[in-house]
Computed example of a mutant assay.
Amino acid sequence: MPDTSERTWELLRLAADRGLTLRPETAVLDDTGWDFQVLRAATGAGREWILRVPRRAEVATAARAEQRLLALLRGRFAVAIPDWSIADSELIAYPRLAGEPAASEDITSYELVWRIDRVDPPAAYVDRLGAFMAELHATPVDAAAATGIPVRDADGVRGRFAVQIDRGGQEFGMHPSWRDRASRWLQRDDLWADRTVLIHGDLHPGHTLVDPAGALTGVLDWTDAEVGDPGQEFVEAARKFPPVVLDRLVAAYGRHDGPAWPGLRGHVTEAIAFAPLALGILGLEAGKQRYVDRAREYFGTPTV
């Protein structure tokens, strides 16, 4: 349904001030994002555009690094990535990429509405996603770091998780069994990569675009890109699917020469188990109480 709220008109005016005229009757506002408000609308000629408006000043600052990263990566992949035509502190705008999200969050129930088979996703989705991840992780780290995105080395990755566990214990009433499990994971050198790579950082199905057959066609929202843990890339890419899909994704990653290591599968299994921790901390920082409540409930009971 088209959206004609006051906020929609404000976003359309921002675009018009920069020479981009969009038809109000085509506008659809997405207010679910943590960092950006997003508006989808079309020109008079029918070309659809995506408008992103930063919610906070620090988001606008980080977006400049995201813009430089997208420029570095353009043309490197078999799938599409956004090509920003307008980018300043108030507005980002780019032509909408082909395809639809593999899954979208219902704004009322917060449940995912799937466009692909969640239990048995198409091979053209899983294989292309593994290939994309392998290609992305092969990006020269120095070039990625020069864009200004966050950079962590292997020790920094483990140290960050240790800090999160400490905070989780304070904020979420973490059961001792979860602390014990985290300690065992941190001590297992074989489960941690010995190097870091460029990662997208948030490859959940809503940020992956598919065609009507379910084949991967594009990857959206590079806000969380960093030089970091290659295993972390698999978490949002796989945790909404049954465990067998993770096996398929790891296999595809290996087929396409992704920098796997013997402990990758075990590392990702632990990272998926602890995924509500990072989300709970983000909920604290962004005022998203439902993620805080979910983390308290999840970590307040013993781990299996």
Score class of each variant (00 low, 15 high):
153 D>F: 13
223 T>Q: 14
264 L>K: 05
281 I>Q: 13
286 A>C: 02
191 L>V: 02
173 G>P: 11
243 P>L: 01
281 I>D: 06
259 P>C: 10
185 W>I: 05
206 G>Q: 11
245 V>Y: 15
167 R>A: 05
241 F>I: 11
268 V>M: 05
272 I>A: 08
276 P>Q: 01
272 I>Y: 12
169 G>R: 14
286 A>R: 11
235 V>C: 09
194 D>T: 12
257 D>E: 10
247 D>Y: 11
223 T>R: 11
174 M>S: 06
225 A>I: 10
153 D>S: 00
217 T>M: 12
172 F>N: 04
157 V>R: 01
220 L>E: 00
265 R>D: 13
173 G>S: 14
248 R>S: 13
218 G>E: 06
209 L>F: 00
232 Q>H: 11
242 P>V: 05
157 V>F: 08
207 H>S: 05
188 R>S: 15
193 A>G: 13
164 Q>V: 06
285 E>G: 14
248 R>D: 13
187 Q>K: 08
246 L>M: 15
259 P>R: 09
273 A>G: 14
239 R>K: 11
272 I>Q: 14
248 R>N: 10
223 T>V: 04
203 L>F: 01
194 D>Q: 14
285 E>S: 15
153 D>V: 03
260 A>S: 07
188 R>M: 03
220 L>A: 06
213 A>D: 15
157 V>T: 07
241 F>N: 11
222 W>G: 01
276 P>M: 02
155 D>Q: 09
189 D>I: 06
275 A>H: 11
154 A>Q: 00
152 R>D: 06
218 G>D: 04
223 T>F: 15
265 R>M: 07
210 V>Q: 15
197 V>N: 11
154 A>H: 00
148 G>E: 02
240 K>G: 13
183 S>L: 05
262 P>I: 15
244 V>P: 07
248 R>P: 12
222 W>T: 04
282 L>V: 13
238 A>W: 05
187 Q>F: 11
267 H>E: 04
189 D>W: 10
275 A>M: 13
207 H>D: 00
202 D>A: 14
250 V>T: 09
271 A>L: 15
279 L>C: 09
231 G>K: 10
194 D>A: 08
177 S>W: 12
221 D>W: 14
236 E>R: 07
229 D>P: 04
223 T>I: 08
253 Y>D: 07
241 F>E: 05
224 D>T: 10
211 D>L: 14
214 G>L: 04
204 H>Q: 15
277 L>H: 07
186 L>N: 04
164 Q>G: 04
216 L>C: 09
260 A>Q: 06
229 D>F: 00
268 V>R: 03
233 E>R: 12
282 L>H: 09
280 G>V: 04
257 D>G: 03
191 L>R: 00
247 D>Q: 14
208 T>E: 01
150 P>T: 01
271 A>M: 15
209 L>Y: 05
242 P>N: 06
150 P>H: 00
219 V>W: 14
225 A>W: 10
284 L>W: 08
216 L>V: 07
187 Q>D: 11
199 I>E: 08
219 V>S: 05
